[in-house]
Design a binder for these strands. Structure first.
Lengths: 121, 121
DNA sequence: CAAATTATCTTGTCACGCAAGATAGTATAC
DNA sequence: GTATACTATCTTGCGTGACAAGATAATTTG
């Protein structure tokens, strides 16, 4: 028997929607200190936000691919003598600009929301 | 000839994604002062946020329907002696609870984002 | 009467988060 | 030596939701 849907799934569904359009910004931001590989980003994000902005690899890899395709990140494979090969991502100049743009956009949106929710109308 | 895609559409696309999961919250909040009808909500929202959180009716009506279906709003038709009939929406008790829940959820998310973006890592 | 305005609803499209599964190498334990 | 767990990547398919576009209808204004 499958467990009933319940509150949790609905709640998770909302978080899911809230992340929409923010993930590219999040990933670009996480690359500002320097290059990183996918698996690393997943753990970094979970750790740094105490799980509030957690993502799975099934979510992250498509994001990274979009960013690469758009020229916002540059890719470098590294095959260590022992261990699984890693794909390192680094911000490009264009990526840095995009990061700025997305940050502004997000801030504008968040401010508008905050102002609205504060209002008694 | 159709105009090329261009920056504007991408940019609009991001706003679009950012609204995801926030619209129900927005609408519920706009109903706190009292009942309102769909068309009214559209203009109200555009006016109060200077277009930052603008929605079209094609977006709003499905949201209202979802809220009605979930029991978060109660519906009342009003047919004035002259003019098009209006469908008035009002918060239910359950809707008020949902509003609180969504507000908390949004705040948590926005705080996590703000904290992350502030960090230099 | 034509055009604009108020008001609602429906259909179809596209993007994206993510669960689930595939693949593969390394390390630990039994 | 084989099972189990961890590191690391990628792919497929599903469901959801914003919104453009179009339909409908009554009223107002030019």
């Amino acid at each position: 028997m499958a467990p009933p849907p319940g509150r949790d799934e609905q709640r998770r569904g909302i978080e899911r929607e809230l992340k929409r359009g923010s993930l590219e910004l999040i990933v670009l931001h996480l690359l500002t200190p320097g290059e990183a590989y996918g698996y690393e980003i997943v753990s970094k994000l979970t750790a740094e936000t105490n799980g509030a902005l957690e993502v799975t690899d099934g979510t992250l890899y498509p994001v990274l691919y979009r960013l690469e395709r758009a020229g916002f990140v540059a890719v470098r494979w590294e095959t260590p003598e022992r261990g699984v090969p890693r794909k390192y991502y680094a911000l490009t100049e264009s990526g840095r600009e995009e990061l700025q743009r997305l940050t502004d956009e997000w801030t504008t949106f968040a401010r508008a929301m905050a102002r609205l929710l504060r209002s008694r109308d």
